[in-house]
């Protein structure tokens, strides 16, 4: 047996174990580490998922949405055709799946309702779109800072646990409405 082999084996195993543990608990880079922030009020936004465009059968397809920070946006997404869709939001004016922090599937059964709840902490320009139909189903979401953002929120989203981390609050459920 080579004299180096046992020590090399020991070091490889210890370094691998400790290194991967540090990697596992290290915070992820990128915007996907965003979490839904606390909110003062709620706002419901209804969107119809159609392969030709969001709200295609209305007067304003792919509407530009305006909202404020620290407001819980309750997206009510209703499937309109037989095609699979996703509801995806990423920061910036362009579509970017790697930066998306919301990416929820909408089942391809007409009438299915999917709720996505999210409250933004930082103002800016966001893009909402569908991964399956990126050409047609894409719109802008503009978040302005709310005037009373300095006041303490009346309701805390999620439970404040341990060292100040909040439970992420993408919650969605589906039920069929015929």
């Amino acid at each position: 047996m080579n004299r180096i082999t046992p020590v090399a084996l020991f070091l490889v195993i210890i370094i691998a174990a400790v290194g991967t543990f540090a990697y596992f608990v290290s915070p992820s880079s990128g915007s996907s580490s965003q979490t839904s922030s606390s909110y003062n009020s709620t706002m419901e936004i209804t969107l119809y998922a159609n392969a030709n465009g969001w709200n295609y059968n209305s007067t304003h397809p792919n509407p530009t949405l305006y909202a404020k920070t620290h407001v819980l946006l309750e997206f009510k997404i209703i499937e309109q055709d037989n095609f699979p869709h996703t509801f995806t939001i990423n920061p910036g004016p362009n579509e970017s799946q790697s930066n998306a922090f919301i990416n929820v599937n909408i089942p391809a059964i007409p009438g299915t309702v999917v709720w996505v709840n999210w409250s933004f902490s930082s103002p800016g320009l966001y893009t909402y779109w569908c991964v399956v139909h990126p050409e047609t189903m894409v719109g802008q979401l503009i978040i302005n800072s709310s005037a009373n953002s300095s006041s303490s929120p009346s309701v805390i989203q999620g439970s404040n646990l341990g060292n100040g981390s909040t439970v992420n609050s993408v919650e969605y459920w589906a039920h069929e409405e015929f």
Partner: peptide, 14 residues
Amino acid sequence: YPLTDQLTQAGGGQ
């Protein structure tokens, strides 16, 4: 399935 498909940290991981 539905969890793995959510490519966010709150879902199945990026």
